[in-house]
């Protein structure tokens, strides 16, 4: 509650002196536990801001809405640490300029919501480095633990079963802050690399291609997972890709705004297990 009040005041302050044109935060959602995005342009709207442990969605994706940042005015945004990492990746991929983004950082890992020190993406590099040092424990999630224990066939069967529910609504893509392409590969039909119908092959093609496109970019915010209307545990595919690039290339997505994309860069010490 203290953090919420502090941030409401700060938002009003920035709006009052025209330092930001808008702040993207959270407000009360349709049920008691749900929060939805709020786009604050006035003092009245600032009073609707909510900040508590239910504010889990990663709002970074709204920043790349076409035209939002092209007037070069600043925008404020409420972000958890993984959201800040998203900002770094978006900056590294030239989708935004971090100087334009004022960050209201917060952490919901404890019982109380805690404000994070700093307002610019660069201010949080120490925090992100410390996160890289201690990646989350694998066994923390029962399902993840189960998937880890499976052999290749079992895992394939598991995902086949999960993907069989996919209805190709692309909510995962819409919710993902990394899916900013103007035309998604799945919408390209000359040629149609990814089958659009929701059968096993098409579903596999879509979900696996998306996982590869997120390799070294996914920060594990869980937006895709929560957006999925048929509850496919998508975060685990992306977490696995993140683990692979971390172990193979020491790449932790979003450590800085100059980080090179893992699949387009190399250094001499990279392991070459795939070269026989």
């Amino acid at each position: 509650m203290i953090t919420q009040e502090k941030y409401r005041t700060r938002v009003k302050e920035l709006l009052a002196n025209n330092s930001v044109k808008m702040v993207i935060g959270y407000k009360q959602g349709s049920t008691a536990d749900r929060r939805r995005p709020l786009f604050v342009r006035s003092f009245e709207e600032a009073d609707e801001l909510v900040l508590d442990s239910n504010c889990i969605g990663n709002l970074a994706g709204y920043l790349v809405t076409e035209g939002l940042l092209s007037d070069e005015k600043r925008v404020g945004i409420f972000l958890r640490p993984e959201g800040i990492r998203s900002i770094n990746i978006l900056a590294a991929e030239s989708q935004l300029n971090t100087e334009q983004i004022i960050i209201f950082g917060f952490d919901t890992s404890g019982r109380e919501v805690k404000a994070l020190q700093g307002e610019q993406a660069g201010d949080f590099s120490g925090l992100i480095d410390s996160l890289k040092e201690k990646p989350p424990e694998k066994s923390s999630d029962a399902l993840l633990y189960r998937i880890d224990q499976m052999n290749t066939e079992e895992r394939f069967a598991f995902w086949k079963d999960e993907f069989s529910r996919c209805i190709k609504c692309y909510a995962c893509r819409q919710a993902c802050p990394m899916c900013y392409c103007r035309r998604c590969i799945v919408d390209s039909n000359q040629p149609q690399w990814i089958n659009t119908s929701s059968h096993t092959l098409g579903n596999f093609e879509w979900n696996i291609v998306r996982a590869f496109h997120l390799a070294g970019r996914c920060v594990g915010c869980g937006n895709c997972d929560r957006a999925c209307p048929v509850n496919i545990p998508l975060r685990f595919i992306n977490a696995r890709m993140a683990q692979e690039v971390f172990e193979s290339f020491d790449h932790y997505a979003g450590t800085s705004q100059t980080q090179e994309p893992v699949l387009a860069s190399f250094n001499k010490d990279d392991s070459e297990t795939f070269i026989l």
Binding site: E93, S94, C181, R183
Partner: peptide
């Protein structure tokens, strides 16, 4: 040029 998102991955690659 219409669909390019300007991520510059290709420039690096």
């Amino acid at each position: 040029e219409i669909t390019c998102a300007g991520c510059w991955g290709c420039v690096l690659a």
